[in-house]
Computed example of a mutant assay.
Amino acid sequence: MQTVSVAESRQLDDKTINQIGIPSMVLMERAGLKIYEDMVHNADLDLSRVLILAGTGNNGGDGLVVARLLATHNYNVSILTVGNPDHASPDHVNQQKICDYYQIPKVFMNADFNQYTTLVDALFGSGLSRNVGGDFATVIDKANAATAKIHAIDIPSGLNGDTGEVMGTAIKATSTSTIAYAKQGMVKAGANAYTGKLFVDDIGIYKGDTFDNE
């Protein structure tokens, strides 16, 4: 399996958006559709009642696309946003407006995660650089303790994308949809206990001959 480092992943994103010219919202829509399809076709997941755990960055934005696709295909889905909405990325803000249009229910930190059959981890992407704390750590630990299965987006939140080490605490996913390429840390010894079944989703980000690795 071909893998990339966290730095390479960022460079590829930047190249695709700013040099090639594919808008970030287009990539987010592609990612969300692939993740939705991974989930629907994954027999290990029961999608009777789904809760999206969304951070305020673009990983959370991917989760909001998944929430909308589930809702518009008549799945029972709710959203728990974790983090300061004032610091949300522009694409996250746009995706939340779309979810609001479709009136997708929102829940709060005191929600009973055992009410759900599947949790979607859209808290952090692969660029996490410090130990998880605060509400994020609380939600991760609560998710791991719940009876619901967990599907992670890009990388289980709390897992270091380069080393595979746990950054304080980390999601233990039943399955993970990683975007474009698996991250190096996801194939390290012991990482499978956190990633579960791995889907690698092609959304139009490619490591080609002209890729500058410096």
Rank of each mutant, 00 (worst) to 15 (best):
D162A: 15
K197V: 08
G190H: 07
G164I: 13
A180D: 04
T163W: 12
Q184K: 11
F199R: 02
A170M: 12
A182I: 02
K188H: 15
T176Q: 05
A193E: 15
I203P: 00
S175F: 12
M167D: 00
K172M: 14
K197A: 15
T195F: 08
D202H: 07
N192I: 14
N192S: 15
T174E: 07
V187D: 01
K183P: 00
A193L: 07
I179L: 07
A173G: 01
G196S: 04
A191Y: 13
V166R: 14
K197G: 03
G204C: 10
A189I: 12
A182M: 13
K172V: 08
Y181A: 06
I171E: 05
M167R: 01
I203M: 06
A173H: 00
T195S: 15
K207V: 01
T176M: 09
K188M: 14
D162L: 10
V200D: 03
A191Q: 09
L198A: 08
G185L: 09
V166Q: 06
N192G: 06
A189S: 15
T163A: 10
A193P: 00
D202T: 04
K207T: 01
S177G: 15
Y206W: 15
T174C: 05
Y194V: 11
G164M: 11
D162S: 06
F199Y: 15
T163Q: 03
I205Q: 01
G185F: 13
G208N: 13
V187T: 04
T163I: 04
A170K: 09
I205D: 01
K172Q: 13
E165M: 04
T176G: 04
G168M: 11
V166W: 13
T163H: 07
A180C: 13
G185M: 10
T169S: 10
V166G: 08
I203G: 01
I179H: 00
M167Q: 03
T163G: 02
N192Q: 14
A191S: 14
A189K: 15
T195L: 12
T195W: 14
K197D: 05
G168Q: 12
A170S: 11
M186E: 10
K183V: 03
G190E: 07
K207F: 15
Y206L: 11
A189Y: 12
E165Y: 01
G168V: 12
M167K: 01
Y194K: 08
Y194C: 13
G196R: 01
V187Y: 00
Y181H: 13
N192K: 12
D202R: 09
T178E: 05
G168E: 12
T169H: 09
G168R: 14
D202K: 10
M167H: 00
